[in-house]
Amino acid sequence: MSVTEASAGARTRHLLYLAAPAIVSVTTYLVLDLVLAARAGQPEAFWSVEGYRLTMNLAVLLRMGPLFFSGILVWPAMRARGAPWWGCALGILATPLAFAVVSGIRAAAFFPPLEAAYYATNPVVVGALGAQVATAGIGALVWRWHRAGWRSPPRGWWSWGAVIAIVAGLLTTFVAVQWDGGQHLFYPWILVYRSLFAG
C-alpha cells in the first residue's frame, strides 16, 4: 500500500467516523421503511394479527425517530467527533433527504421523472427537514451546556443560532405538517405543481 493509498484510507475512515451518527440514522430509517414496505398488509406472515399490528405500528412510529428527530443526537454526536458545523448540518439533513429520494423513486413508478422529482419536495419532506433543524438546535444547546458544565451560567453555553434553528425549524414543521393537517402548505405545493406540469 502506498503512502497515498494509506492516507486516502485513513481519510475515508475518519469521514465515516465523523458521519457515523448520520449513517446510523439513515440506515435505521431505511430498514424500518423496508420492513413496512415488505410486510404491510400481510398479517398472515406474523404469529398473530395483534403481533402484526404491533410490529407495523412500531415500525411506523420508530421510523419517525430518524426521520424527524434524530438531529437531537446526530448534531451533538458529530460535533463531539470533530465534524465542522456544515458537516453536522449535512448529517442532520441526510435522513429527510434519504426519505425524499425514496419518495421520489416510489413516485417514479406512477409519474413521469420530472413530476416524481417534484414529488420529492413534498410537505412531509419539508416538515422533516424543519424538525431535524429544530431538534438539532436543541441538541446543540444541550451539548454546549454539557461541555460548559451543568452548573455554568447560560452566557457560557447559550447560542442564539441554536435558538433561531429551534424556532425556525418548529415553525417550518408546524406549517408543513401540523397546521390544519398541513393543508396550508399542501395546497400551495399542488398549485405550484399545476403551474409547472398541468398547464
Binding site: 404491510a40 400481510q42 398479517p43 394479527v49 402484526y52 399490528r53 411506523v60
Partner: peptide, 20 residues
C-alpha cells in the same frame, strides 16, 4: 379488516388522505 393497523395513516400510500 385484519390487515389494518393504527398508524397506517402515516405510510406513504395514505399520507395525503388527510387522516394522519
Amino acid at each position: 379488516p385484519d390487515e389494518y393497523f393504527t398508524y397506517q395513516t402515516l405510510i406513504d400510500r395514505n399520507v395525503w388522505e388527510g387522516t394522519a
